[in-house]
Amino acid sequence: MATLLHIDSALFPEGSASREITAAFVRVWREQHPDGQIVHRDLAAAPLPHLDATAAIEGAGNALRAELAAELAAADAVLIGAPMYNFTIASTLKAWLDQVIIVGHNTGPDSPLAGAPITVVASRGGSYAPGTPRAEAEFVLNYLKTLLTTMFGAEVDFIVPELTLAHSKAEMAELIPLADASRTRAFAEAEEKAKALAARLAV
């Protein structure tokens, strides 16, 4: 029985591109694993405290950090909704990462997360793809890939719905076709990746 840890960090419960895509991923995952377990943490609805000096010193001896680390270690796969805010991830997601990453406990070559598949839905209002004017301001993908592979040795994959503000910003109206194409592609990738991951873990 496979377990999926699903993390959402979008601020708004409705109209969020990352939430829509993670929900699609979860729906397909559930179809493939009807008897499986899905653990969902909504960091906007129930934000975690930022890491303080006491919790940092206590490490795995801190009850909350131990709980989060155990939850992560028990997951066969992880799904993270990580929309871009001010060129980076939500502070609630950063708080979760700071709490759950415990050096000497779940990091390094012997990490229980080594090789674990982590799928990140990194939505953004504009485009930060290579060759675009804001490519150098793309800090979400670079940060999360570096962090999760370096600390955990995890296998990180991304789904990137772009131009999500095109329908609501008059100055982006000409980009609506590209936004719609990106959205369609993201949903297709969510379905494909969920099915592939489910099949892989069923072996």
Rank of each mutant, 00 (worst) to 15 (best):
L5T: 06
H6Y: 05
D8W: 04
S9C: 07
A10Y: 08
L11W: 11
P13A: 05
P13T: 12
E14R: 13
G15H: 09
G15I: 10
S16D: 11
A17S: 14
E20W: 02
I21W: 08
I21M: 04
I21G: 01
T22A: 04
T22Y: 13
A24C: 09
A24T: 02
F25V: 14
V28L: 13
W29V: 03
Q32L: 01
D35Y: 01
D35G: 15
G36R: 07
G36K: 02
I38W: 03
V39G: 09
H40F: 07
A45V: 08
P49Q: 06
H50R: 11
L51C: 02
D52P: 01
T54A: 15
A55I: 06
E58F: 09
A60F: 14
G61N: 15
N62W: 02
A63N: 08
A66E: 09
A66F: 04
L68T: 03
E71Y: 02
L72K: 03
A73F: 03
A75H: 04
D76C: 13
A77S: 08
A77F: 14
L79T: 13
I80H: 08
I80C: 03
I80R: 03
G81R: 11
A82H: 04
M84Q: 04
N86F: 13
F87W: 07
A90W: 00
S91F: 11
T92Y: 00
L93S: 08
A95Y: 02
L97Q: 11
D98G: 06
I102L: 14
I102W: 00
V103M: 08
G104N: 11
H105G: 00
G108L: 05
G108Y: 06
P109H: 07
P109V: 07
P112R: 10
L113Y: 04
L113W: 01
A114Q: 00
A114D: 03
A116C: 10
I118M: 12
T119A: 10
V120P: 00
V120I: 15
A122Q: 12
R124P: 00
R124M: 13
G126L: 02
Y128Q: 08
A129V: 05
A129Q: 07
P130C: 08
G131D: 14
P133G: 12
R134W: 14
A135I: 01
A137K: 09
F139K: 07
V140I: 07
V140M: 09
Y143M: 08
Y143A: 00
K145Q: 15
T146D: 08
T150G: 01
A154P: 12
E155R: 15
F158M: 09
I159R: 04
I159F: 06
V160Y: 03
P161E: 04
E162S: 10
L163E: 01
T164R: 09
T164E: 05
L165H: 11
H167R: 12
S168H: 14
S168C: 06
M172Q: 11
A173D: 06
L175V: 05
I176S: 00
A179Q: 13
A179D: 12
A179T: 05
D180R: 13
S182V: 06
R185P: 00
R185K: 13
E189S: 13
E191M: 07
E191L: 03
K193W: 05
K193S: 05
L197G: 04
L197H: 06
A199R: 14
L201E: 11
A202S: 15
